[in-house]
Design a protein around this nucleic acid. Structure first.
Lengths: 237, 237
DNA sequence: GAGTGGTCTAGACCACCTG
DNA sequence: AGGTGGTCTAGACCACTCG
């Protein structure tokens, strides 16, 4: 792995972006500058930039340059849309609350995905969070990470309050795929209380399995949504 | 548009695939053959193939060739997963039934997405379908297409029972993006009857707006799912 | 071993943006 | 006008698949 020149340049630039050498909206050095500095052809430089573009780290613009894009398009990332608002406008104030910090524990019985031997033998790091829109609790999320080479995560505060930011910056683990199962269920007493609903009200439930840049390493999440006042929006192309 | 050589080759090959010149699993001519025949550099040929790959029409394999992939990765295409079955195995028997064929009518009042003037001035083509898994009705879908340059669609049978296949083969309209809003709602009497549920049972509801290769042309769908026995699966990367 | 796609070089001209 | 990314050529060598 990592044998090729365009891959080296790709990793080098990604690392610079992640470590803040270039900030959101900055221009990367031009393709000519990069090819001179790294002693590569422009073709090879373009291949590296093309990878960055696919991953959403940069946006290219003819006549201008390669623009760094930190708030990049993420894998089916969720947004909340209020019914009354005009679509695409007036961002809601979304806040995150960690109910139970990163905590080492055993896997739950009858876990919702089949685990392999390696995952079972490691215990799991558990995280319980609530997402609110304008003080209304809208989502309850329980996340399970196999405890493999994640020294220092337990009990720590998350970087920028985000698990994914923490994983990429501290452990070079990047989420790059997602498998999900969606259902509508009835709220039980606990869900009703947590999400400000009545028992038996409909709740949106999602099981997720995330694939990562570390081969064989997966992250699991169970998400519950109160969709009474907000729809769960997502965009794909 | 369509000024560049790699775009011409891209369109040419796509058209051949769509018209059945190459079938699923076939190999395209090799990059060398394509470059000789079309008097292009291999670089340019590779750019065309790279586009086909992005769109999912082919899969490349080193040492072998470019393999045509008809059942290609589609935009958040839905699959149904039974709870008892092993994930990824034992495909369910899925069947489609058209309840109301492609029918010209007025837009519903308070349509779920804002329509632009052009869309409003055209009427809409309406389609109501049910999808069943092993004779259980699982999904009810209502589709609305602005009636713009779609001569001959009304009252016609769909090719291979698929709206998207019909659109691309008859009208060169390809769906390439999707915006969706998801909620959990209570079944009303009509939904309960159609989906074999009791009133007030939870139902998964999705509004969708599809973007297409025809600029400014969108397709709208409203989908209702009975998720009592099947989850709605989807995979993204 | 012959053929395939993957990587890479060293050039060229073009379309677009900005000072 | 000068610099940027987009397209394209004409080569070369490498890694992989298959008979």
């Amino acid at each position: 792995m990592q044998d090729y020149r365009y891959q080296s340049l790709h990793q080098f630039l990604k690392s610079q972006i992640l470590h803040g050498v270039y900030e959101d909206g900055d221009l990367l050095p031009s393709e000519n500058e990069l090819s001179q500095f790294h002693k590569l052809t422009r073709t090879t430089v373009r291949q590296a930039l093309s990878e960055l573009q696919k991953e959403g780290y940069i946006v290219k613009q003819k006549g201008k340059g390669s623009i760094v894009n930190i708030r990049r398009k993420r894998l089916g990332l969720l947004s909340f849309k209020g019914f009354s608002e005009v679509i695409g406008h007036s961002d809601q104030k979304v806040s995150n609350t960690v109910l139970s910090g990163p905590l080492l524990q055993n896997w739950p019985k009858d876990f919702f995905y089949d685990l392999n031997a390696l995952e079972k033998s490691a215990r799991c790091i558990y995280l319980k969070r609530i997402r609110s829109v304008n003080t209304d609790p809208v989502m309850l999320e329980e996340t399970y990470l196999p405890n493999q080479n994640l020294e220092g995560l337990i009990g720590k505060k998350l970087i920028k309050g985000s698990l994914f930011s923490t994983l990429i910056l501290q452990y070079q683990i990047e989420v790059n795929s997602m498998d999900q199962d969606v259902r509508a269920i009835k709220a039980n007493a606990h869900l009703a209380k947590t999400l400000s609903l009545n028992e038996n009200d409909p709740v949106l439930h999602i099981y997720r399995k995330y694939g990562t840049s570390r081969p064989g390493y997966f992250i699991y999440s169970s998400l519950y949504f109160n969709t009474e006042n907000y729809a769960i929006g997502s965009y794909f192309k």
